[in-house]
Amino acid sequence: MLVDAQNAFADDTLDELVLRTQQGDQVAFAALYEQCHRRVYALCLRLLADQAHAEDACQEVFVQLWHKISQFNGQSRFTTWLHSVTSNIAISYLRKHKNWLQKVVSIENSGMDEAGIALCGDLNGLDKLILRLPERARLVFVLHAVEGYRHEEIATMLSMAVGSSKSQYHRAKKLLQEWYEND
């Protein structure tokens, strides 16, 4: 079996940085930020579909990471743990920033428009389409297809029925296909 040396090396370095950060080394934490901020920001952007909110949430993730990194026990890969922390923070960010009107009449936020997507810089084709999805379909699609969560887990995370998670996933796929074929 071939060994992916580059990834193995990257993981070793990351493990060292995590260990040093757990010991309170802020220089190591800055290096950890350098290595991981793009994946954290990408996930925040996919979930929140708003550049400014994604930047805020990304900062919040790293602030909480600094305080909670001692809770990482090494039983899973650090990046897996980081993605799960990021997903939870982004979802709670979304809840906190809903205004009272959206909370009481359940208005669903539509996805990002073309102008907003253009401001996000160089995105790949799939990311451009994901950001256009309406909120619930986007959250489920990102958590299931991109992050690999099961519908049962998503239902708990988003406080929705398992069936709703499945139907939002199909809705998302249908919209993505429609846009892909028409663009």
């Binding site: 901020h37 793009r38 994946r39 920001y41 990408a42 952007l45 550049q51 994604a54 930047e55 990304c58 900062q59 790293f62 401001l119 996000c120 810089g121 160089d122 995105l123 990311d127």
Partner: peptide, 8 residues
Amino acid sequence: MPEPQKSL
């Protein structure tokens, strides 16, 4: 991966 537009 998309990158933030400012340094965070």
